[in-house]
Write a protein that binds this DNA or RNA. Structure first.
Length: 310
DNA sequence: ATTGTCGCCTGAGTGC
DNA sequence: TGCACTCAGGCGACAA
C-alpha cells in the first residue's frame, strides 16, 4: 500500500509531469471515489473543467494540486487526493491507455498542455479506500508553507486538522516531542494519530519502534524526551530510506504506486515477519493484536512495559 | 478536549 | 467447483 515515501514519489512525479496542464474534461466512473465533495461527482467535474494544475504538494499521505485560472492569482482551491490502500495516480498517453483499459479506473482527467505531453491523469483504485475531491485552500496557522512541495502557506480544508509530517521542513520537532509526551496513551497510538503527526502507518510505526527498541504499548507520558526523539528519528530514517529506494524506478509517463517497491521485500525488519529471526538478536518476531490490526515486535529488543497502554 | 472503537471497501487466500 | 468466511488498513464519524 502507498505509504508516505510512495506518496512523495507520486507528488514529485506529478509536479514534473502535469504542472501547467489544463483540465479539459473529467470522467467519473465510480461515484464513491469522489466522496466528501460538495455537489457530488458532477460538481467535482464542473469545478475542475478549464482549471490549470499549478503544482503538487503533500502533507502526510494527502496530496493536492492547487487549481489556477488563466489569469495568474493565488489558487483558492485544489484537487485533493488520498490514495488509501490501493490508489494510483497514473500519468498516461492515449496509446498506452487505449491498450490497457484498467479494470479499476475510477476517475479520468483529460489534460491539455501537460509538460510531459500526457493526455490523461488516471485515478486507479482497486479497494476504493482512496478518494479525490476539490477542496478550498485555507491559510496555515503558522504562516509556513502548507506542506512538502507547497510554495503557498495554505492547505486544503480537509487537511487542516492534520499535523505536519516528519519530512516537512517546517515541522518543529521539539514541539512535536512535547505533544507526544502530553498524550496519555501508548506510543504507537500516538504515532498513528494524524493530528499529532501525519503519514506514519502501521508498517512504518512497527519498523520505527523496532529500530528505537521501544514497545508499542509504552505509555507516552512516561517517556523521556530523548526516547521520544529516538522514536521520531527512527521513523524519519525508515521513511527517508524508503524514499531513496522508491525514487529510483520512475518511468517518464507512468507514476506508479503499489506496495511493491523494493523496500517492502528487502528492508522490513519485523513487519509481517511473524516467527522469523529478529535481524538484531535472532529472537523470533512476535505478533500482537492491536487496534484491530497487527503489531510486530522483537520480544527481546522491545520488552513489554509493565504499565503499557494498548 | 481527549481517547478509543467502528466500519467503509474489494480481492486474495483458506477451509469445507 | 463454489460458497462462506477472514484478512489487510487509513482515517472519518461517532461514542464515551
Amino acid at each position: 500500500m502507498p505509504e508516505l515515501p510512495e506518496v512523495e514519489t507520486v507528488r514529485d512525479g506529478l509536479d514534473r509531469l502535469v504542472t501547467g496542464a489544463v483540465v479539459r474534461d473529467v470522467e467519473v466512473f465510480r461515484d464513491y471515489s469522489v466522496r466528501r465533495h460538495d455537489g457530488g461527482p458532477a460538481g467535482f467535474a464542473d469545478q475542475l473543467r478549464g482549471r490549470r494544475l499549478a503544482g503538487a504538494a503533500r502533507r502526510g499521505k494527502y496530496l493536492w494540486l492547487p487549481l489556477a485560472d488563466a489569469a495568474p492569482a493565488d489558487p483558492a482551491a485544489a484537487l485533493l487526493a488520498h490514495l488509501g490502500m490501493s490508489g494510483q495516480l497514473l500519468v498516461r498517453d492515449p496509446a498506452v491507455a487505449g491498450e490497457w483499459a484498467h479494470p479499476h479506473l475510477r476517475v479520468r482527467l483529460h489534460l491539455l498542455d501537460a509538460p510531459s505531453g500526457a493526455h490523461y491523469l488516471d485515478f486507479v483504485d482497486q479497494r476504493t479506500f482512496g478518494h479525490l475531491s476539490v477542496a478550498d485552500l485555507v491559510p496555515t496557522p503558522d504562516g509556513a508553507p502548507g506542506g512538502f512541495g507547497s510554495p503557498l502557506a495554505a492547505v486544503p480544508e480537509p487537511v487542516a486538522h492534520i499535523g505536519r509530517d516528519l519530512l516537512d521542513p517546517a515541522l518543529d520537532r521539539d514541539v512535536l516531542v512535547e505533544r507526544v509526551r502530553r498524550r496519555r496513551t501508548g506510543i504507537k497510538r500516538a504515532l498513528l494519530d494524524q493530528t499529532v503527526t501525519s503519514g506514519v502507518g502501521n508498517i512504518y510505526a512497527d519498523e520505527a519502534l523496532w529500530r528505537a527498541r521501544v514497545h508499542f504499548a509504552r505509555a507516552t507520558d512516561t517517556m523521556t524526551r530523548p526516547v521520544v526523539h529516538r522514536v521520531l528519528d527512527a521513523a524519519t530514517e525508515v521513511m527517508t530510506e524508503a524514499l531513496v529506494q522508491g525514487g529510483t524506478s520512475f518511468d517518464a509517463l507512468y507514476v506508479n504506486v503499489n506496495g511493491e517497491s523494493g523496500y517492502f521485500s528487502r528492508s522490513l525488519a519485523v513487519y509481517g515477519r511473524l516467527g522469523e529471526a529478529c535481524p538484531r538478536c535472532a529472537t523470533p518476531v512476535r505478533r500482537d493484536e492491536f487496534m484491530n490490526r497487527s503489531s510486530f515486535t522483537c520480544p527481546r529488543c522491545q520488552p513489554r512495559p509493565r504499565n503499557g497502554r494498548w
